[in-house]
Nucleic acid binder design. Structure first.
Lengths: 251, 251
DNA sequence: TATAGAATTCTGCTATGCGGAAAGACCTTC
DNA sequence: GAAGGTCTTTCCGCATAGCAGAATTCTATA
C-alpha cells in the first residue's frame, strides 16, 4: 500500500467531513507526525483541495466543491487541441490553455507553457470562477439570459456566486461585448499580474463546448493583444472546430 | 514537492474532468509509467475516489460526488463519541461507527474496530447510500415526509437515488418501523456478508445530527441482536446526547 | 491462431518522504 | 511584561517506500 498516497486521500475525506481543521487535528486523526501533516496539507493547498486562512486553519478548497462530469470526450478534446495550443505558444510565446465550463466554474484541462522564464504555469486540473476567466466568459457569453439568471441571480444561484441586480446587468453588458468581439479578456481578475484572452470552441451543432485561452504576465499582455491575438485565437478556434468535426465523422 | 502525492491529486482532477479513463490514459496524461498509474488508481478505488468496471475503465467514485460540509463540529463529535464506540466494542466485540448524513449519503466519521480476526474494517472516510445504511436509515426516519419526497421522488431527486412510487411507499413503511423500534438494520444491503444496527443521536434541540452503528459479519449478527444490542445502542446514544449537551454548556 | 496493445504483477534500486529536532509564532496565565 | 505551553513550520538524516522496467497475463482484432 502507498502510505503517503493513502494518507492524503484520507486527509481529503477528513477535510470534506469536518469542514475545517488545524494541522494538529489532521495529524491526530491520521496518526501521523505534525510535520507530515503539514507537508500533505501544503500539497492539498497547492492543488486547490484546501485553502488555509490567516489563523492557520485549513478549509475545503475549490477542488472539493467540483463534481465529476460524465464522460463527454474531454480526453479526445485534449488530444485534438494539443497541437493548436502548441501553435499558439509558438506564435506568441505565452502559455495556452484548454478550458471547459461546469456550472459557474471554469476548469483547465490542459496547458502548454510558455518557454519564457517568467510565465503563467501549468494550470491543468485547476478550477476558477467562470465569470472571471477569459475562457469562462467566452462560454458564458453564449448562454441564454435566463440561464445566466439562474446561475447568478436570486435564490437558485449558488450562494457564493450570487450577484446584485446592478452587478448582473453590468455582467450581461460585458458578455454582450464579448459576443460582439468574439473573445473575452481577464485582466488580473483571478490572479494579480496575470492576464488572458479567451475564445469559445463550438461543436458542429454550434454549442460552446470548450474555450482556448492565451495567458501572460500582465507586463507582456498588451503586446500580444496589439499583435493580433484576438483574430489569431478566433482562427485557432475555427481550426479546432474543423478538427472536431473531422474526428466525429471518422468514427 | 511530494511527487507521489501530487500525482494522485492530479489523477483525482483528471478523473473529475474526464468522467472516465483507462490506465494508459492516466499514465500518458500525468507522464508516469503505466505501473505507477495502476498503483495510484488502485488507491483511488480503495478509498472510493474511483470505481473500475469490468472492461478495466476507471470512473469517478462516490467520494468524488460528495461535497464538503460546513464546519458543524464533527471533530468535537468524533472525540465525544470515541469512548462510547469503544464501550460498544468492549460489550459486543464488533466494530462500532460514527456516521453523519449529508443529502442522500451516509458518511463514516470514525470506526473502532472489533478485535476479532474476522471483522468489519475501519470505514473512516467512506461514503455509502444513506437509504441502505443502518445509521443512515435511523437519521432518515426522522425527516418529514416532504423532505423525503424531495430526496427520493420525482425530478428534484438525484437521478441515481430516484425511487418509484411503490419503492418509496415501502421505504416510508420501513422508516415508520425504524421510528417505532428506535433503531434500524442493514442486512447485507451495502456489502455481502456485512450487517449492522444503527441508532440516531440528537442534539439538545432534538434534531438528529449523527448515528452510531454496530457492524458485524452477518454470521455473528443475529447473536448481537438477540444479545440486547437494540436497547444497548439506544442507551449508548442517550449517553452521547448527555455528553453533547454537557460539552455545549461548558463552552 | 497469431499478434498487438493494454493491464497488472513483480522486483531491484534510489530518491523520496518520514519523523524528530529546532526555530518561530501565538495564546494564556501569573 | 514574563514565563510557559501548544502549535505551526522548517530543516535534515536516514530507512524504506514507491518508482519504472521487465515479465506475465488478459483482451481484442485480423
Amino acid at each position: 500500500m502507498l502510505s503517503s498516497v493513502d494518507n492524503v486521500l484520507r486527509l481529503v475525506q477528513l477535510l470534506r467531513d469536518t469542514g475545517g481543521l488545524r494541522n494538529k487535528d489532521a495529524a491526530d486523526a491520521l496518526k501521523i507526525a505534525p510535520s507530515t501533516a503539514n507537508r500533505l496539507l501544503s500539497m492539498l493547498v497547492y492543488r486547490g483541495f484546501a485553502v488555509q486562512d490567516e489563523s492557520h486553519l485549513y478549509f475545503p478548497g475549490p477542488a472539493l466543491a467540483e463534481p465529476a462530469i460524465e464522460d463527454t470526450g474531454t480526453r479526445r478534446l485534449v488530444l485534438i487541441v494539443q497541437p493548436h495550443l502548441e501553435e499558439a505558444v509558438r506564435r506568441y510565446g505565452e502559455s495556452a490553455n484548454l478550458i471547459i465550463r461546469v456550472g459557474t466554474s471554469a476548469r483547465f484541462l490542459s496547458t502548454v507553457e510558455s518557454p519564457h522564464p517568467l510565465r503563467v504555469g501549468d494550470r491543468q486540473g485547476a478550477v476558477v470562477e467562470a465569470r472571471k476567466a477569459s475562457g469562462g466568459k467566452a462560454l458564458l457569453a453564449e448562454l441564454p439570459r435566463k440561464t445566466l439568471e439562474r446561475m447568478y441571480l436570486g435564490e437558485l444561484a449558488p450562494h457564493d456566486q450570487r450577484m446584485s441586480d446592478a452587478e448582473f446587468d453590468a455582467f450581461i453588458a460585458e458578455l454582450a461585448a464579448v459576443r460582439r468581439r468574439g473573445c473575452a479578456f481577464n485582466r488580473e481578475a483571478i490572479e494579480t499580474g496575470v492576464s488572458a484572452i479567451g475564445v469559445a470552441v463550438h461543436n458542429p451543432s454550434g454549442r460552446g463546448v470548450a474555450a482556448l485561452s492565451l495567458s501572460a504576465p500582465s507586463s507582456r499582455f498588451e503586446r500580444i493583444v496589439t499583435g493580433g491575438a484576438e483574430q489569431f485565437m478566433r482562427t485557432i478556434a475555427e481550426h479546432v472546430e474543423d478538427d472536431l468535426a473531422g474526428s466525429l465523422s471518422s468514427e
